[in-house]
Nucleic acid binder design. Structure first.
Length: 303
DNA sequence: AGCATTTGACCGAA
DNA sequence: TTCGGTCAAATGCT
C-alpha cells in the first residue's frame, strides 16, 4: 500500500508532465502534417545524416502520434489508478487508442481477487473470473496496445453471434497476469469490446518503455511506468524487428503504470475466426482517418 | 525447436 | 443445467 503514498505525491505532477508532453507532441504533429511532403522527402532523402533525417514525414508523424497517445494514455492511467476515478473511465472509453490499463492491485479489487485465484490455488483453477474488468473499452478499431498477447481460448457467447477471445500476456512466465478479452459486439460497422484484467509486470513492459525513442528530447525523461499497449507483434510487422537492447536500468519499483513505446499499428480481428493479434500494417494510417484519432487530436489541442 | 493458435474438454459460478 | 473462463493437447507457423 505504500504505492498509494507514492501516487499521492507524484501522481499530479506526473499527469501534468504527461499532458504537457502530449500537447507538445500534438503541436509537432501538426507541423509535420502541414509540412510539404515532397520537399521534405527530397530534402531528407538527400539530406543529412542526422537521426531524424532518416525518417520520412510519415514515420515522423507516426512517432508523434505514438507519443501523443502514450501521453494521453499515461495520464488516463494515472487517473484510472486512483480510487475516485469512476468518471475517468468515461474518458477512457472515448480514447479508442488507449490501451491496456495496468493498475496496481491495491486499487483494483477485481484484479486482487483474480490474483488470489491464480496464486492461492497452485492447482489448476478454472474458476470463472470476476466480471469486473480492470479496464474496458469499446472501439471500432483494434489498436495495438504495446504488449504481446497469447490467445488461450475462445468461446461462443450466448446472444452474440461473435466469438469472445481470451488472451493473456505472453510473459505470464514472469508472473505477468495481465489478460484481456476481446469480443466483437457489432458487425457493421465493426465494434469491439475489449476488457483488460490485471496489469503488466513483465519485463518487456519496462523494456519497451525504456527503448522508447522520444521524438522530443525535452520531455523524454519522465520516469513513469505506463502502458501504451502496443503489441510488439504488430511492431514487428511494421518494422523488421531490431533485437531488443539489454534490460535497462532499474525502474521505480512495482510501478503503477508503464509506458510502452513503439508502434501503434492497427490491430485487426479477423472477420471469420477472430484470430487476434492480426494487424493491418499497411493500414497504420487508418489512424489518421479515423474519427477517433481526430477526436484525440482535438482533445490534445484543447489541453 | 520453439512459440503461437486452435479447439474440445473441464470446471466453477449462477 | 447452462454459461463463461481456462486448460492443455494437437496443430500450425517461422
Amino acid at each position: 500500500m505504500e504505492d498509494l503514498g507514492w501516487f499521492a505525491t507524484n501522481g499530479k505532477k506526473a499527469m501534468e508532465e504527461e499532458l504537457i508532453r502530449g500537447r507538445d507532441m500534438a503541436n509537432q504533429l501538426l507541423e509535420v502534417l502541414t509540412f510539404d511532403d515532397k520537399s521534405n522527402i527530397s530534402r531528407q532523402v538527400k539530406g543529412s545524416n542526422s537521426k531524424s533525417s532518416k525518417l520520412l514525414p510519415l514515420s515522423i508523424a507516426q512517432d508523434l502520434v505514438r507519443e501523443v497517445l502514450k501521453s494521453l494514455t499515461n495520464t488516463l492511467l494515472y487517473l484510472n489508478s486512483r480510487q475516485d476515478s469512476n468518471d475517468v473511465l468515461i474518458t477512457v472509453r472515448d480514447l479508442s487508442f488507449s490501451t491496456n490499463c495496468p493498475k496496481m492491485d491495491e486499487y483494483d479489487g477485481a484484479y486482487k481477487q483474480l490474483k488470489t485465484l491464480n496464486t492461492e490455488s497452485p492447482k489448476v483453477s478454472k474458476k470463472r473470473k470476476l466480471s469486473a474488468p480492470t479496464w474496458e473499452r469499446t472501439t471500432s478499431i483494434l489498436i495495438d496496445d504495446g504488449h504481446t498477447w497469447r490467445k488461450y481460448g475462445q468461446k461462443t457467447i450466448t446472444n452474440s453471434k461473435y466469438l469472445r477471445n481470451y488472451y493473456r500476456c505472453t510473459h505470464s512466465d514472469q508472473r505477468c497476469e495481465a489478460m484481456k478479452h476481446v469480443q466483437r459486439i457489432q458487425g457493421n460497422p465493426p465494434l469491439y469490446k475489449i476488457s483488460y484484467y490485471g496489469y503488466h509486470i513483465c519485463k518487456s513492459y519496462f523494456q519497451s518503455n525504456i527503448i522508447s525513442k522520444p521524438v522530443s528530447s525535452s520531455h523524454s525523461s519522465i520516469l513513469l511506468c505506463f502502458d501504451n499497449n502496443i503489441s510488439s507483434k504488430q511492431e514487428d510487422m511494421l518494422r523488421p524487428s531490431p533485437p531488443l537492447p539489454p534490460p535497462s536500468p532499474p525502474l521505480p519499483p512495482p510501478s503503477p503504470l508503464v509506458v510502452s513505446s513503439e508502434g501503434d499499428p492497427v490491430e485487426v480481428i479477423k472477420e471469420d475466426h477472430f484470430s487476434q493479434n492480426q494487424f493491418l500494417l499497411s493500414e497504420g494510417l487508418q489512424l489518421w482517418e479515423s474519427d477517433v484519432f481526430l477526436e484525440l487530436l482535438r482533445d490534445v489541442k484543447m489541453l
